[in-house]
Write a protein that binds this DNA or RNA. Structure first.
Lengths: 344, 344
DNA sequence: AGGCTCTTTGAATACGATTGCGAAAAATTG
DNA sequence: CAATTTTTCGCAATCGTATTCAAAGAGCCT
């Protein structure tokens, strides 16, 4: 066991500060505890001298008595999809703003997942936020969240756990509508993980809206992963079926699909839409029409659910995103004539 | 202040477990402390019953006595460059493997940076790893790392703080050599942050190698940020000067540059190289020649420096990366004739 | 058997804060 | 001004574990 770093001169304790200015240690504690019973002049005097000698309360000690750590454990498992870094960044900042720290758990799928998560229990995190799509089975999930507030982000399917996500149904319908309005009638679908509830939600919203508008599914393929390569492969599978648009279950799939379509020389004939609005979708080389996930709203709702005294009975919070129209669904001149207004 | 979650039935304590099986609390503690003085049979018996009644040591309490948290604070400030998520992911996993947890500090540049970092001190993190490029001034840096082991990742310029990074000099020279070997003689440079020591290192290695090979710099521009848009703008600035290759200070710049060059119709005539090897650089749409940062080596070295008893006097650890040749420097038929072998 | 060393164990204390309780001080009231 | 109520503050117990110290036990050798 590594020895205490010698250059670490022990920090001042509340007792030392108390002795220094001739008050009780409890007074110091109260000076730093908002809402506690202490007279303003005394508090100010204590805070003042604390600043002078550089005293800061030891959070560890206070965790021990209060049994609150102000730490949320963030369980993540795969950041290769560029959507997650963006979410992660905003989320940690949002939590920080209300005084919550983020302890990362980046788990590698495999056998010893509980081993990778022991600290979530031994460190007594106040809450657990889970972003990893599918790595946790129900038993592990229950074990990891036992006794603390838990929240699923972009992962559906647990009625008893609070969930915050984008309104995938509205998003998928909205994208189908947009394709319809711009004249596409032969629409294919490239799925990512069909096992994941989120993939299922988008897919079923897609098909049901298709049916409502009187279209048939022109082709579908699933790659069981959200990645550029998967999108590429998926697009190649669908191209022979001559769709005039392809609905990709996520942006990262769509980018691969767009490149595949360019390579195959059909990019001009086949529209494409994605889902998420990752930064690359806005790059001129892709210019992908997509449904933007409301990251800010998601973060706000998450922070709210973690900080509010009593979360309320609603479990699923599906937040509306926003259609972002770009060149990948631009109307080709030759098909523009065939355009029909969309009946509501 | 939120009340203790009612459904959180207090976890078992070491004393309870001790009472249950008729040993002292110290024995329980020792059973969970590797290398402590306890007989094997007793240890096994304790661990066994611990497993049965679900006892796990409370890390908070042990932090208080040992003054070690096994937490490293990770200071990050901008994850828009896709290189960072990859590094972050590997790093957290690497730390986790040796029993270290990662507490994220995602700071937004601005006035109250110390306020965003107080937890780094009050939570008594054992070590601080800083990835954020330039947000911390020297005073803040000293304040945040005071008394604990500190380490800079991909950010140079502090001789007194341990630093781990890619060998930017070797990388830049290697890329110049590659351009030379493939016949380019008029090379331009698109810089990101010239203030950052890492940007400076790449740039000066670039120019010095250029000089060694008897070439002149054909043009340079700096955008003071690493982003797709900046690369786009930089490329457009250089194109009029008719370079036959552009050296981008990072991949994300290069991707923007490539798209700009495609748009301008000069992509075939101008080679491009980047630095980092982010995932997108391998996409067929870009196929960017680049110098791959040795993320795995960087992580290993970081973990080593954080866990070793005495870090040794070496401060700067520059680790070799790897040239990745792709289509963006493919030799054009018409220039192939002019090829000269590179004199060592 | 006795003296010795080495290992194992428990009792007691420390870590640095929070908080219930009661006393003292201050504010309010009649 | 006395009688109350309300605030403020210090004492001391507590949180759950690590660790020192001393005592007890286990071998070992002569």
């Amino acid at each position: 066991m590594r020895k205490q770093n010698p250059k670490a001169s022990k920090p001042v304790t509340s007792r030392q500060l108390a002795a220094l200015i001739g008050v009780s240690q409890s007074a110091v504690s109260r000076a730093f505890t908002p809402g506690s019973s202490i007279a303003a002049p005394l508090r100010d005097r204590i805070l003042q001298s604390a600043r002078e000698i550089g005293y800061q309360p030891n959070a560890i000690a206070s965790m021990l008595t209060t049994r609150r750590t102000n730490i949320v454990g963030l369980v993540v498992s795969d950041m290769s999809n560029p959507f997650y870094p963006a979410l992660l960044e905003q989320l940690t900042q949002g939590l920080q703003r209300v005084g919550l720290q983020t302890l990362m758990f980046n788990i590698t799928p495999g056998a010893n997942i509980e081993e990778q998560l022991v600290a979530i229990r031994t460190y007594n995190v106040d809450a657990v936020v889970i972003i990893s799509a599918t790595v946790l089975n129900d038993r592990t999930l229950a074990w990891a969240t036992e006794g603390r507030r838990a929240l699923l982000l972009n992962r559906l399917g647990h009625d008893d756990i609070m969930t915050v996500c984008c309104d995938n149904t509205a998003g998928a319908r909205c994208l189908v509508d947009h394709l319809y309005e711009t004249g596409r009638r032969r629409i294919g679908y490239v799925a990512g993980l069909t096992k994941s509830a989120i993939g299922m939600t988008r897919y079923s919203a897609f098909t049901s809206r298709l049916a409502e508008l009187g279209m048939r599914l022109t082709g579908t393929t699933s790659q069981e992963i959200y990645s550029y390569d998967a999108g590429w492969a998926g697009a190649l599978e669908l191209i022979p079926q001559k769709p005039d648009a392809i609905f990709f279950a996520s942006d990262i799939l769509a980018l691969g699909g767009l490149d595949a379509m360019k390579q195959a020389g059909v990019a001009r004939e086949i529209a494409a839409v994605g889902f998420d609005d990752i930064p690359m979708s806005g790059w001129p080389g892709y210019s992908l029409t997509t449904y933007r996930q409301p990251i800010e709203k998601i973060v706000d709702k998450t922070v709210e659910l973690l900080t509010v005294a009593e979360p309320g009975p609603t479990r699923l919070h599906a937040l509306p995103g926003e259609l972002v129209v770009r060149a990948s669904t631009a109307i080709e001149p030759r098909s523009a004539a065939a355009l029909l207004p969309l009946a509501p």
